[in-house]
């Protein structure tokens, strides 16, 4: 299950072909070498430090909403597991 995370480009270093993105509110360096015409404000899918391709803001928001939901489900599962462990 290979999740690539949507992130927004905050800064671009043209010479190095790298940039800084906001990934869940955390600033991360990424390579922009694999995509064309990256601009500040674009949304990209990021995997192991590389921007893979550009996506629309709508697609990014839809995917991020699903990822938030996965995070919430995982937290609920942890709470349930902890409660079960206490009962046992």
């Amino acid at each position: 299950m290979c999740l690539a995370i949507p992130a927004q480009i905050l800064e671009i270093d043209q010479a190095a072909d790298t940039g800084t993105v906001s990934l869940g509110g955390v600033r991360r360096p990424v390579s922009l070498a694999l995509i064309e015409d990256a601009e500040i404000g674009d949304f990209v899918l990021v995997h192991v430090g590389y921007a893979l391709n550009k996506i629309s803001a709508e697609e990014a928001e839809r995917t991020l909403a699903m990822m938030r939901e996965i995070g919430e489900l995982a937290e609920q599962a942890d709470v349930l597991a902890a409660a079960q462990a206490e009962i046992n």
């Binding site: 299950m1 290979c2 999740l3 699903m66 996965i70 995982a74």
Partner: peptide, 26 residues
């Protein structure tokens, strides 16, 4: 997140078919 696919519970099959490749995009 090996149980991430639980996020699709409650959705229609057409929605899942559309959304799942965007989530597991690699």
């Amino acid at each position: 997140p090996v149980t991430a696919s639980r996020v699709f519970a409650g959705k229609s099959p057409a929605e899942v078919v559309r959304q799942l490749p965007a989530l597991f995009s690699l």
